[in-house]
Computed example of a mutant assay.
Amino acid sequence: MTPAPEHGGDTAPPRRRARRFLRHNGLGLFFLTTFLLALAGQAVAGHAEFNNQLVSDGMAPLDFGAYLASSDFAVDVTENWQSEYLQFFLYIFATVWLLQRGSPESKELDRAGTESDQDQMAGRHAKEDSPRWAAAADWRGLVYSRSLGLVMGTIFLLSWLTQSVAGVAAYNEEQLRRLQAPVSWAQYLSAADFWSRSLQNWQSELLAVASMAVLSIYLRQRGSPESKPVGASDSATGVEG
């Protein structure tokens, strides 16, 4: 039996530690890597499309660095981010109270609501390894117990604000190319362009969440925690594989 290190340090060889790190963080690393690849692909394709539009308007094309710093690239990126975080924000808060019979995306049918401190291992029911703020009986416990939804909602609002600022700049650049008057930020917030960009992303994200909640009642993905066990009843609710 291998003795434990005296000071709690990790004495495994670096290669083994690296493999363990990749194994323990594979899900996050996979999606972060694919996000960066998709962002890079969007930048390359968006740069080509934007320059094609400039050339067709009789203007000089932008180099790649200038495009990355442009309002057009910023608005294209942030309009996708805000819709994703809106999806998670609504999902996190809606699933506190709303149920879907037979879905692993729902809580069990008798557990709607914020649940007791005992169920949530909060306050005086916190465990030794619980986060420090989970045991707090003051504002810290209140904030921490809702921190995931609050952070998701904050990122959504910041992304939406950034989209509106970048969007009005991109919109006014297009207006000037057409020899039309620019608009203010407040005017842009009520413009069809802003709401078209927002709503076309919102509807796709909300449809995807609804599809996941309902299709997971009847369909299975073996080994996935987003699915019920293969042999679970269609009516089993809040059960994960």
Rank of each mutant, 00 (worst) to 15 (best):
P13R: 07
A94R: 07
S227K: 03
V239Q: 02
P182A: 05
D117W: 05
F21H: 05
E105A: 15
Q187W: 09
A208K: 11
H125K: 06
V75Y: 01
S224L: 07
T237C: 01
D117Y: 05
L62S: 07
P3F: 04
D63P: 03
S145H: 11
E84I: 14
E173R: 10
A60R: 12
G26D: 14
R19S: 14
N25I: 05
G113W: 00
T11N: 10
E115Q: 06
S103N: 02
D57Q: 13
G167S: 09
L32S: 05
L62C: 08
L189C: 10
E128M: 12
A213D: 08
R17I: 12
T78A: 09
A181S: 13
T95A: 09
Q53P: 06
S233K: 07
E49A: 15
W133L: 11
A170E: 02
I155F: 00
T237N: 00
F50P: 01
S190I: 15
R222P: 10
F89Y: 05
R20Y: 04
L37M: 05
D76M: 11
I155T: 02
G41T: 00
D63L: 13
N80H: 09
M1Y: 07
L215M: 09
E84Y: 12
A112H: 01
L158W: 03
P182M: 06
L148Y: 11
T2I: 14
R197M: 09
L36G: 04
D138W: 02
V55F: 02
P131C: 10
T2S: 07
Q42P: 01
R124M: 15
W202E: 05
P13D: 06
Y144T: 03
L219H: 08
M152K: 06
S233Y: 03
